[in-house]
């Protein structure tokens, strides 16, 4: 007999956008459902629930992850940022601003995932080319824009962030 316990419910305590959420969850509950239903963070969207569309992309301990491909019980002790954590004090951040100015969204459903994906990408590649942006967001499906305006938004965001950096 293993001395490791198999549990039907587990307590999960996780820091999301700076707040600590603690809840009892069944192992089968996906992280995406946990965020949406337990935490009320409905900005993380469910477009496919099988890890292809990217709409549920979040930041987990500094890296993007698909919230539909994780179970809530796995994030105990982790730090998560969701789309709701990007804007501060009612102000959109430079990436969000760039999406607004460049019509980088239409219906807005893929946008949360796009923003999280682009956030990680720009951290790793602050001066990207258009082709690099296209590859970076190729795991996030958008059905509205035809992508051109999203690519433009991310490139514009890179410029703004570089300018902000320079100003410091």
């Amino acid at each position: 007999m293993s001395d490791v316990q198999v549990s039907d419910k587990r307590t999960v305590s996780v820091t999301i956008n700076g707040h600590v959420y603690t809840a009892e969850v069944a192992p089968r509950v996906t992280l995406a459902d946990f965020l949406r239903k337990e935490c009320g963070l409905t900005g993380t969207h469910l477009g496919c629930e099988h890890g292809v569309c990217g709409a549920c992309t979040i930041m987990l301990d500094g890296r993007t992850a698909r919230a539909c491909l994780m179970l809530a019980v796995q994030v105990d002790g982790c730090t998560i940022t969701t789309v709701e954590g990007l804007a501060r004090n009612g102000e959109l951040n430079p990436l969000q601003q760039a999406f607004w100015d460049n019509h980088g969204l239409q219906c807005g459903f893929c946008t949360s995932g796009m923003l999280m994906c682009a956030t990680e990408f720009l951290e790793q590649n602050p001066k990207p080319t258009g082709e690099e942006v296209r590859e970076a967001i190729s795991g996030n499906l958008c059905r509205c824009t035809g992508y051109a305006s999203i690519v433009k938004s991310v490139l514009d965001a890179a410029d703004r962030m570089a300018a902000d950096e320079g100003a410091r």
Binding site: L41, L46, E84, A87, D101, T111
Partner: peptide, 17 residues
């Protein structure tokens, strides 16, 4: 630029689910 966008960008949209 669209009046619809800020809340959608902030994750404050409200879709049926």
């Amino acid at each position: 630029r669209r009046t619809e966008d800020p809340r959608l960008l902030a994750g404050r949209g409200q879709y049926v689910d």
